[in-house]
């Protein structure tokens, strides 16, 4: 009886490893499958024009068979980078306040609000962007004498920044909380002020985790579609400034997929755009991982 039970346990143990491996392989091969599918769908276009040409060309005129994706790629990067630049310092300071300064009572009030922010659908952020941020950018333009419609890269970056707040704040606070209290005490007992302890010791100790959070926030921003699409103006030209309109890749795909399919190659061009977005995200994550490994070594 016990023997039978034991052999069953050993079998289950052996099997569980195999089962986990299978699922891990399935998850990984999903990436390859998506990559293969997108490549296959892009092939009709890429057979005529090289990928580099598509990436390097800035003329988007589907009716004439010209599918330059440069404006979209630039918009994507510009908006995402700008959003990250806006969001990271704000979230880092907010999280520092929550973890290092706020009392339990205040902390317990703030965190649920952050969670509510995380649960708001992107469409709502989009509407808020149209109602508040677009006029705000117009106002900035008028004040500083810059030509702008309000619908702009800047408005999109601001919406995105607010949308990644919850992700960043949640992970930042989690990461800062993992820094042991003894380490704080040590720095303080060496005569450091609270801010010196935070800036010289805690941030450094938490660097790898904080960086990982930024990567996650950035990836999320790269793919965000609806809210951005509503405020960015969707003009397929190279953006002249952050006050000008843009047209990031996700918006391009969402706006046009399934339409104007009578135009030859249109479908393939959109798939190529998706392929490029996918590759950007993969490369970005890989690069992030490398930096992370370096940081963790310290």
């Amino acid at each position: 009886m016990t023997n039978k039970r034991n052999s069953f346990r050993i079998l289950a143990d052996k099997l569980s490893g195999k089962v986990f491996l299978t699922f891990a392989v399935i998850a990984c091969s999903l990436i390859l499958l998506i990559l293969a599918g997108l490549s296959f769908k892009s092939y009709p276009l890429l057979k005529h024009v090289s990928l580099f040409k598509v990436i390097g060309s800035s003329i988007w005129a589907p009716a004439d068979g010209k599918f330059g994706l440069l404006p979209f790629i630039l918009s994507t990067f510009l908006i995402t980078i700008l959003a990250t630049v806006f969001a990271v310092p704000v979230c880092l300071l907010a999280s520092t306040y929550i973890v290092e300064y706020a009392s339990n009572t205040v902390r317990n009030l703030i965190m649920p609000v952050v969670d509510i922010l995380a649960g708001i659908p992107s469409v709502i952020f989009g509407i808020w962007g149209v109602l508040v941020l677009v006029p705000f950018v117009s106002f900035l333009g008028k004040t500083f004498n810059i030509a702008t419609e309000g619908y702009s890269i800047l408005a999109a970056a601001l919406v995105l920044a607010v949308m990644v707040f919850p992700v960043l704040i949640n992970i930042f606070t989690e990461v800062l909380r993992t820094v042991p209290n003894d380490l704080r005490d040590s720095a303080l007992s060496l005569g450091a002020t609270k801010w010196e302890t935070i800036s010289k010791v805690i941030y450094r100790k938490a660097a790898a985790g904080l960086f990982a959070a930024v990567i996650l926030g950035f990836s999320r921003a790269l793919g965000e579609t609806i809210a951005v699409l509503m405020v960015v103006g969707n003009s397929p030209l190279i953006p002249k400034s952050i006050f000008g309109m843009g047209y990031p890749i996700p918006a391009l795909i969402a706006n046009n997929y399934g339409e104007m399919m009578s135009i030859p190659m249109y479908d393939a061009a959109l798939m190529t755009a998706a392929l490029i977005l996918f590759i950007i995200i993969l490369l970005f994550n890989a690069a992030g991982r490398l930096v992370l490994i370096k940081l963790e070594k310290n």
């Binding site: 042991p180 040590s186 007992s189 010791v201 450094r204 310290n298």
Partner: peptide, 15 residues
């Protein structure tokens, strides 16, 4: 605090 050096239960090297 500078008047007192502190040793914790587990060593806490600064990063």
């Amino acid at each position: 605090r500078k008047k007192m050096g502190l040793l914790n239960q587990r060593p806490t090297p600064l990063p």
